[in-house]
Amino acid sequence: MSQALIEARDLHIEFGGVKAADGVDLSVHESDHLAIIGPNGAGKTTFLNICTGYLRPKSGTVRFDGTEITGRSPRWITRRGIARAFQIPQLFLEHTVIENMLIGAAARDRVRSLWRPLSASTARDEMMELLELMGVADVAAQVVTALPEGQRKLIDIALALALKPRVLLMDEPTSGVSSQEKFQVMDTLLRVLAHQQVTAVFVEHDMEMVERYAERVAVWDAGRIRIEGTPAEVLADAGVQRDVIGL
């Protein structure tokens, strides 16, 4: 197996007495497509929040490419190569799509000439190329509020990819997307991730998506990793079928 890119060890965190992580060990490897599944409230999103600096665990460590990142700020972690796409796309709604992308590129490149017009950004071609890859270049000039949820998801992910991450953490990348659109969104996403050589971790409730797109699955239940393996192994587990999938 390839070297662990993200390595979480013995994570503990609780909210009002509920243990969201109770001694979690979880590794994400280079080029992984890791799906984290589990019942609602089990602590899956907490893992993403800890890895991106939004939460500090009570104890335990997270290392990224060998460097400890536990408790560092989201900005610091983003700059080191972990990007995040949220369950609800966090786009700047009153800006156009290309403006969103150029703001991301400016933050990434730490552009110093803050008084220059945004439209004169040197990253425009690169951002348009990324939108092209995600299949949303045709809406580049549109304000985000005018776009349907499926396109917003793709743009949110494009924005995360604009930061040139090594790992992209996604919280239900197809939630809110129609069942007709969700495969298209995911196909596009994985194609771009492969093109950009980005490792992917996604929290998912839709087992169809897990089966089709994950290479590895971790079941997060009551703050612990209950089982880890290939989708075929994990989804065939009787306990997972009963408690997580609800069969």
Binding site: R75, E94, I103, G104, A107, V111, L114, R116, L118, S119
Partner: peptide, 25 residues
């Protein structure tokens, strides 16, 4: 509405968490 700094300000005003997530100070 036109300068990079202005867009960073309006973006942060709209969603501070998202701005921070993409590396805006």
């Amino acid at each position: 509405h036109h300068t990079l700094l202005g867009h960073l300000i309006t973006a942060t005003a709209e969603d501070r968490e998202a701005a921070t997530a993409m590396g805006v100070n």
